[in-house]
Amino acid sequence: MIELDRISRGFQVGDQLVQALREVSLAINAGEFVSIMGPSGSGKSTLLNLLGLLDRPNSGIYRLDGADVTGLDDAAAATVRREKIGFVFQFFHLVPRLTAAGNVALPLLLAGMAPSERKAKVARLLADVGLSARAEHLPSQLSGGQLQRIAIARAMSMNPALLLADEPTGNLDRATGREVLALLEDLNRRGTTLILVTHDQEIGARAKRHIAMEDGRVVGDTHPSPAGGGEMP
């Protein structure tokens, strides 16, 4: 599903070029549950942004579902994000003035779905994360775990094939974090490819494939089940 071929990304910081990713090559198959771990500044967030088409590499090729998405223009990249990729963030990023239902509906609204159809779909999505009763609550009236579940419902609203989660449990206590992770694992079991960036060893260990990063390079790629995707150095 995902193929990265010698992807490099550098940032100009002052007069110094910081190399966040150095020729990263990676293949991830549909339906995998991958954790990306590594110290701060190892390039894992940059990698996630590139995978989500929020950033572009300086060199290398990124293929998503067989199509080269490296050089897509803004509108085309937005379409791919809308239709194929869901995001879950550490800080939830819910729009504070919109209700839970309003937040979940955002991607559908951006996709131009008719209001009546949208309403039914939002109700189903909220039921899936067990928050039907909270549909009309504002984010300020909800707990951290509830906020992240709403964010997950929002990420899943367009049935994306790929779910990118950046420290999804980073702002939650351990018990709530486990609940949220269980929800993500459940989505993965139903076929969504899940890529999760985390600091947390326990959370990372739940993934079926572990990618370790350091200094812009992939330094470890453990595969418990060799039947999975391609082996990387």
Binding site: A75, A78, R82, L106, P107, M158
Partner: peptide, 14 residues
């Protein structure tokens, strides 16, 4: 962050 979110959710610049 709201603008960034909209873009991540698939809103093109336009």
């Amino acid at each position: 962050s709201e603008i960034g979110l909209l873009k991540a959710l698939g809103a093109p610049a336009a």
